[in-house]
Design a protein around this nucleic acid. Structure first.
Lengths: 156, 156
DNA sequence: ATTAAAGCATACTAATCCGGTATTGATTAA
DNA sequence: TTAATCAATACCGGATTAGTATGCTTTAAT
């Protein structure tokens, strides 16, 4: 399945709505209306987005949320990390002593490289790409015109 | 977290042990010994691996398991799919009517492209790469020497 | 044919995670 | 001051997952 949490998905939906609003602040109630999400769910989503700096929250009367950066500057990696923490396919990769068969596991299997690859992929795709599916391929192509697959690995 | 299930991880560990054994069959008991996994767990893992054709099971006295293909021919995508089904980051991508906010979700957010990208990455990395972390980067580089990132997307 | 080794299938349980909800408190503009 | 709005915490039910147990079927060596 290899799936992300629903909250992460909701996060993208909300960011999309905020992207459409641009500089205009949207209240939680408005976001709930536009997305079809329940208010408590919206709060949870907004908290994660605000904590990670992807949206800017303003309290008080006539407060609300607005997107912190341009859609092209928001990477899917940022969103995923905001809701699920660092990308770690296995527990071994995240924690240190989480594996009880360390003697065979840590020596033989190595998911670290795959982790890096997926991380790089998520870093390449922006909210802008997600918003315009038909342009997704084109946009990725344009953003890294002559980049070979190798670069995906060489980067940090 | 974006993590895979433990069984998938165990599957890689077991495949690694079988890869070391080469053409020699290993019994479930032997696999349990070499990996440190409990027998019932080993059975679960082996069933998934055998069903997906990654290992060949032989019953009866002196039976056991052996790897079905060379490690370089076993993609991580195969292993992941063997345990977790097709790669589907969101429920929307897998099922059809799983989403209760379809009106906003399916129109705005689009994970399909990311799905494809990750699928391609998993298809590029083989068991051989995982077994030899230090050679992982080099191996991926060799296998697709002059392939640009674009090809990752263009492929189905 | 017998027998023992080995895989196959099913069911069950405990633990964990996740999505959703409710409640109360803190902050700010009007 | 007041009302609107975000913030923080705690809670609950359902779903998934990992691990275990049990009995059955198949195969190969004798």
């Amino acid at each position: 399945m290899l799936k992300i949490s629903k909250l992460t998905d909701y996060g993208v939906v909300v960011l999309n709505v905020l992207a459409e609003a641009g500089a205009v602040k949207l209240s939680g109630e408005e976001i709930a209306g536009k997305t079809g999400l329940a208010m408590p769910t919206v709060r949870k989503v907004m908290k994660a987005l605000a904590d990670s700096g992807l949206v800017i929250a303003q309290r008080g009367a006539r407060g609300g949320y607005r997107i912190a950066r341009a859609p092209a500057q928001i990477r899917m990696l940022d969103v995923v990390q905001a809701f699920e923490g660092p990308v770690a396919l296995t527990d071994c990769a995240a924690e240190e002593d989480a594996c009880d068969i360390t003697h065979s596991c840590s020596l033989s299997s190595n998911w670290g490289g795959v982790n890096q690859l997926i991380t790089q992929v998520l870093a390449r795709v922006t909210l802008n790409d997600i918003r315009q599916p038909e342009r997704q391929q084109q946009l990725v192509r344009d953003s890294i015109p002559h980049t070979s697959f190798i670069d995906l690995i060489d980067l940090s």
